[in-house]
Design a binder for these strands. Sequence first.
DNA 1: GGGTTTTCTTAAAATTGGCTAAAAATCAAC
DNA 2: GTTGATTTTTAGCCAATTTTAAGAAAACCC
Lengths: 226, 226
Amino acid sequence: MRILLIEDEASIANFIKEGLEEEGFAVDVADNGKKGLELALNILEEYDLLLLDWMLPGLSGIEICRAIRKENQHLPIIFLTAKDTADDAVFALETGANDFIRKPFSFEEMLARIRVLLRSKRGEQTIFRYKNIEMNLDTHRVTKNGEAVELTQKEFSLLEYLLRNKGRVCRRTRIIEKVWDINFDHSTAVIDVYINFLRKKLEDPGAESSFITTIRGIGYRINDET
Amino acid sequence: MRILLIEDEASIANFIKEGLEEEGFAVDVADNGKKGLELALNILEEYDLLLLDWMLPGLSGIEICRAIRKENQHLPIIFLTAKDTADDAVFALETGANDFIRKPFSFEEMLARIRVLLRSKRGEQTIFRYKNIEMNLDTHRVTKNGEAVELTQKEFSLLEYLLRNKGRVCRRTRIIEKVWDINFDHSTAVIDVYINFLRKKLEDPGAESSFITTIRGIGYRINDET
DNA sequence: GGGTTTTCTTAAAATTGGCTAAAAATCAAC
DNA sequence: GTTGATTTTTAGCCAATTTTAAGAAAACCC
């Protein structure tokens, strides 16, 4: 996987480059906007992902992002930004970025986000469907009958776990461990509550049976559609 | 598969017990070393695996492990330990343990290790059939002539036990121990009631003989199809 | 057949586990 | 800090499940 990093501060650029290379990525660095854009546009299909600093001498990150999006809709773009107003984040996403990370950030966190965006390139399944519900891990969106449904993080990852295991029982213990990361507290009823949230948000009001089947004493299951 | 867990901390013990039961194991818990050792030695051949806490009030895990190994070479023993020096691990293995897991551990991990140790004992079969009846442990579903039949937890695990032992007699006492609890009152008639439930749910109304054969004075058997 | 034991069947009681709503706690944005 | 959103806890309720009990039926033995 080849990543283009556009970042003017040499120390940061190096830190990221070396870290990512240790993880097995190939990383090119451009230390200003103009160079970066050139590289990106000339060998666009070479790159699997773009890490883009918000504040750059010359062309700003935003401008680069716009320019690239004109040519290529699919290249995942992650903004690195020191700013911390929500406005900027929203603005960045509207401009066409897929994600943004605030400096200072942990390398782990960045890596995790990069991996998420590259999932589809690695051939992993990123779209899950059940009847009229569609979940897209790339865009982190869920739709019901084509209309967006806003899910919180926990709701999202619970649904993801259920859909990944469509057709199989999802045992309570597993769910707690996978979605909540809890190892020893079994006395909680959070699962029930979140199942309830998902049902409320994703079910048609008049439905006679839930799309999530309860298996009493065991867990839950989203049925295979056959 | 029956597992004996010797662990004094109730919350951990419960978590493990319930999790493993969801996975279809029968789990007995002893909350101190003395009780645990007694159980283990008295009904040694009943247990397929032993989960043993390192630090216990009274008899320590190590002592228990040694005592059991004198009697039985084959029972797989897994240590649960909060200690984290390599020495202890080595020590545990030398004492006769087959594996050890450091707390806090993920349930997944523990399950994986248990499965490895039980692999030889347990076929990883997840689908069982008898004539027109099919049971799938993975989806936690039972069908008759392809149509879903809803079974409760107890019905499910009773049927599972019978099918796992297709062709063999399942003695009442064994059934009580495996499907219910080892400490369960043996004078009860629950089995009869549940056998009846299964027959009602899974038999064709006009059948002249039941798919579960009663062996008077002994127990039940699902016959081999030959 | 008659007596005894064991199993079957049914109904009712007891218990459990999940659902839901609402409150409390935590977290994040400003 | 204050506010609003998200997450977790709590508790009452209800329905499904499990257990008990008891009479009926079947199997066994003399």
